[in-house]
Design a protein around this nucleic acid. Structure first.
Lengths: 223, 223
DNA sequence: GTATCCTAAATTGGCGCCAATTTTGGTAAC
DNA sequence: GTTACCAAAATTGGCGCCAATTTAGGATAC
């Protein structure tokens, strides 16, 4: 069994154990492959066995951890194919509602998105891994809310957790992080300009983390 | 508490209680609003309380049932807005991969889909509600598998369960069922003809259950 | 040194039990 | 007849306990 650091930490009663374990998985504290012993989690999160079990069952239903009968649960290894497929799904969904976002954007929502993009910038400089990750989620959630489809917003949130969009693996270089930050602002620009095509390209490049955001933008502006 | 019929029925050990409860919800045996008492479910499915609890927790995570602390769980009421949003998502996803389906369709897969469409026809005539429902799922799953994106296949399966695509509410009239059956065959025709646009229209009409499948088809054929 | 076996320790899985909470039904008051 | 109250019954929620299973470590044989 992979060893797991013992962190004495009271369970915050406003967030349940599922969230706490999930956070530790997403931030890399509990890396892929880690065996999650129930008795260790009890101590780590200062909770009872039934709570641990419920959390683990929920996470296994989300396929973030795998249950091996009589042996326990371990964190899934990253699966490149799954990650690719999830990205493809996200591209499909998020670009499909770009027109709705543009149509429904108000000065207030644009200002809010600007603020969230700036908040992401600040977290890039000063925040913890988790704060940074959450700043990214906040930006994207606010953007997707413009679609008016709450199920889609929730669904994208859910599927993001399934794979390498998690913070430990999402941004492999500092340059990529900085590009993501710029792309946030550019998305807001496209919204403001009501440029659906540009927004779609930006969203796709952003999700796929390709490096062609800047040229596509200038090409779209010439068109 | 809404009363619940007591069916003496052994839990089939190859399907867990979650599946059994889900089936009864989807087939209308446990209608929207029904309170699911743990002690009744124990008897109904011939299983233990922890198994019941796990099943209910899982179903609540999927938002099929709602947990009310200290009172229990009840089956969610249908929500028209959610249903609409889920349909919109399905249209986005399933039409987005129509080109992939057409590209990847082989004579074998087309024959398989034909067979599944015919199976659906037969279940319409002779099958139980559940058999009918499962025949529909089988057809659509096979079609979506042509996309090559397994995550998308699984995701669509998941989200279908969330709302009124469930069998108790999916087909409101006999005419609608029959139209759905015809549409299955027409989708296979479009696949065979490698007509992406037609396939997209059919998929959309099918998901939204609009009545315009036939005119759109003839329009697409003239183009 | 490696492989095998055995036993003790560790861990998981699941059940029973009971405290806490809600529901139900009966009674009394108006 | 309606409302309020109370006690008993029903139900949920969660904990402790222990059987079942796995792991780890030591001893033995080769």
């Amino acid at each position: 069994m992979t060893e797991m650091h013992d962190v004495t930490e009271n369970a915050a009663n406003d967030r349940d154990v599922t969230d706490l374990v999930l956070e530790d998985i997403l931030t890399g504290v509990l890396p892929a492959g880690t065996w999650l012993k129930q008795i260790d989690l009890e101590k780590r999160y200062d909770c009872t066995r039934p709570e641990v079990r419920r959390a683990l069952d929920r996470l296994s239903q989300k396929r973030l951890v795998e249950h091996v009968p009589n042996r326990g649960y371990h964190v899934y290894q990253p699966d490149g194919r799954r990650a690719q497929e999830v990205s493809d799904i996200r591209v499909i969904l998020e670009t499909a509602v770009a027109d709705l976002m543009v149509e429904r954007a108000t000065p207030e929502s644009i200002a809010k998105l600007r603020q969230l993009a700036s908040h992401f910038d600040r977290m890039t400089m000063e925040g913890t891994v988790l704060e940074h990750y959450e700043a990214n989620l906040a930006f994207h959630r606010e953007l997707l809310l413009l679609s008016g489809n709450n199920e889609l917003v929730d669904l994208v949130s859910e599927i993001r957790q399934r794979t390498s969009s998690a913070p430990v693996s999402q941004w492999r270089t500092r340059a990529r992080v900085e590009r993501s930050a710029r792309e946030h602002h550019m998305m807001v620009d496209a919204l403001e300009a009501r440029d659906v095509a540009d927004l779609k390209h930006l969203i796709e490049a952003h999700i796929r983390q390709t490096g062609d955001a800047a040229p596509t933008e200038s090409a779209a502006r010439q068109a």
